[in-house]
């Protein structure tokens, strides 16, 4: 039995958790989420390099909430999104236990201070391909950037996998689903797609924890996480607030400072 399975079994046996949300073996060599509710089933749990999906996305689901107190297997990115969910009062820190896993070890985190310490010790890692795209975008002119995003977004058929994979897209009614008034064109045409992704990026500003879940969920292979990441980086650069590091952080775009930059205002 792996260290993860042992720890999960102890949590279930002691009643500290009633369900362990983790990764299990799926089909075609892929992993899938598993919800382990008995000690006998802990053998289903696996953790390796294939486990990149952010499982904290399940914490906001009412059917998962009904399973009782949860323990969650979390990558460093998932730990950050859990911190952000706590800061946004979506998760009660007392209601969830974290089995933080990285390549080397499994760490049990039970309180906000431990989560914050873990997040501080595991800084954001940007995959090399995302770094390469970011660097080439920085060298482009506005027209070239327009053409780049037009080409990338032309592959989007609005399956909303990016939204479903995102732990912080927890609104029960999304702006893109509204039709009175209809803010975002529903069709997956050039305009509707651009508006949807711009809206998502604006709604993730100061909240995206850069876990990379949306990019890996995209069936069209669009580096879609870059938009939300860029919005969050803009907030970090301008207002000094990085998402997913503090459980008591104020919401970046619902707060302000008297000396925020206004050089662009006439």
């Amino acid at each position: 039995m792996s260290a993860l399975q042992v720890q999960a079994g102890e949590l279930l046996a002691s009643g500290k958790a009633e369900v362990v949300i983790g990764y299990g073996e799926g089909t075609r060599g892929r992993v899938r989420p598993v919800f382990v509710r008995t000690r006998a089933d802990v053998s289903l749990l696996v953790f390796d390099g294939r486990c990149t999906a952010n499982l904290t996305v399940y914490l906001a689901k009412p059917e998962v909430g009904r399973m009782g107190k949860a323990a969650i297997v979390a990558t460093p990115g998932a730990v950050r999104s859990l911190i952000q969910l706590i800061a946004e009062h979506q998760v009660d820190p007392g209601e969830v236990v974290v089995l933080a896993a990285d390549d080397d070890a499994v760490t049990l985190l039970t309180d906000p201070a431990a989560l914050e310490a873990y997040a501080a010790a595991h800084p954001v890692t940007i995959p090399p391909e995302a770094k390469a795209v970011t660097e080439s975008l920085a060298r482009m002119s506005a027209q070239e950037r327009r053409a780049f995003w037009d080409a990338e977004l032309s592959r989007c058929f609005k399956c909303y996998a990016c939204r479903s994979a995102c732990a912080l897209c927890y609104c029960t009614r999304c702006i893109t689903d509204m039709n009175q008034p209809q803010w975002v064109c529903v069709a997956p045409h050039a305009l509707g797609v651009m508006e949807w992704h711009l809206n998502r990026a604006m709604h993730m500003a100061g909240r995206c924890v850069q876990c990379g879940s949306c990019t890996s969920a995209c069936p069209a292979g669009i580096p879609i996480g870059l938009l939300a990441m860029e919005a969050s980086r803009s907030v970090e650069k301008e207002f000094g607030a990085q998402a997913g590091l503090r459980c008591d952080a104020p919401p970046a775009l619902s707060s302000f400072a008297a000396d925020d930059r206004e050089s662009f205002i006439l």
Binding site: A142, R146, L198, M202, A231, E238, D260
Partner: peptide, 20 residues
């Protein structure tokens, strides 16, 4: 004040997506 913050991010995103 709240609007000013939002405009900073909005302008940045418009620029990132290549709008004038």
């Amino acid at each position: 004040f709240h609007a000013r913050r939002r405009w900073v991010v909005f302008r940045h995103m418009m620029e990132y997506m290549g709008f004038d």
